[in-house]
Amino acid sequence: MSNTGKSLSDQAVQELVAKLKQAIATGTYQPGEWLKQIDVERSYNVNRFTVRSALSELHSNGFLQHVPYKGYRVTEHSLQERIAITEARELIECAAAARVIANMDSPGLQRLESLALEFRDALNAEDRPRMMKVNFAFHRCFNDYCRNPHLSRMVDELRERGVGNANRGWTKRSTQEASAQDHLDMVEALRDKNLVRLQALIHIHLNRWRQGYDSLSS
């Protein structure tokens, strides 16, 4: 294969990896769900080599589990792993909050407020897939304003790894409504440049999923 051909092949693999990560993060593929190679080929219009390479990379990075003679399925984290992922996100995002406030501008505030309102609209319409996608977009936009691409990618990866097991907490209407209000409150804290308030909201918001577990929500 020529260097050009190899480059295009590698690009196709990375594009599929990114799409599958987003599908996992937004709940299209649920924890424990099997990813059949033929289904991925058809859904994303890619060849077998690209699918195999992408699934292998996602397995190496911990997003998928490989079961010999059966295939790949979405990793299902234990409760302890989910807690550890949340703690890691909280440490990073609370530390980054000061940079987000310092770098925030009017277009950013408008974008975040628009996403917060769109999330609320999706909630009222009971459109869960849209809720997941908008929630993902809100947090990505927020973290992009720390102006550190390495940190943003780190947070994205933690969110992608952990969001599936957070779904149990999200099934409660009260939790969904509280999360919608969290987004709006975070925008106001950014507008007011209130770091203490913003960090408190980050802590509350990231731990909403615990409300799906009686042993953690008491």
Rank of each mutant, 00 (worst) to 15 (best):
M1Y: 11
S2T: 03
S7L: 15
S7H: 07
L8S: 02
S9E: 08
S9Q: 06
D10A: 12
L16M: 02
A18P: 04
K19F: 06
A23Y: 05
T26Q: 04
G27A: 06
T28I: 04
Y29K: 04
Y29G: 00
W34D: 09
L35G: 01
E41V: 01
E41L: 03
E41H: 02
N45V: 07
V46H: 02
S53N: 11
S56P: 09
S56Q: 12
L58W: 03
Q65E: 11
Y69K: 15
Y69L: 15
K70T: 02
K70V: 08
V74E: 04
T75D: 08
S78N: 10
S78V: 15
Q80S: 15
R82S: 11
A84G: 08
T86V: 03
E90W: 02
A95G: 07
A95Y: 10
A96D: 06
A97L: 09
A98R: 09
R99A: 13
R99C: 04
I101V: 15
S106E: 10
G108C: 06
E113Y: 13
S114N: 11
L115H: 13
A116E: 00
D121R: 12
N124L: 11
E126W: 05
D127W: 04
R128C: 10
R130S: 15
M131Q: 10
M132D: 14
V134I: 13
A137L: 08
F138H: 06
F138Y: 10
H139R: 07
R140V: 07
F142K: 01
C146V: 07
R147N: 11
S152M: 13
D156I: 11
L158T: 04
G162E: 01
G162A: 08
G164M: 08
N165D: 09
N167C: 10
N167D: 09
N167V: 15
G169H: 02
T175G: 10
E177S: 09
S179N: 10
S179V: 14
A180D: 02
D182T: 09
D182R: 10
L184I: 05
M186T: 06
A189F: 05
L190E: 12
V196K: 12
R197T: 11
R197D: 11
A200Q: 11
L201D: 06
I202V: 02
H203G: 14
H203M: 06
L206F: 04
R208F: 09
G212P: 05
Y213K: 06
Y213W: 15
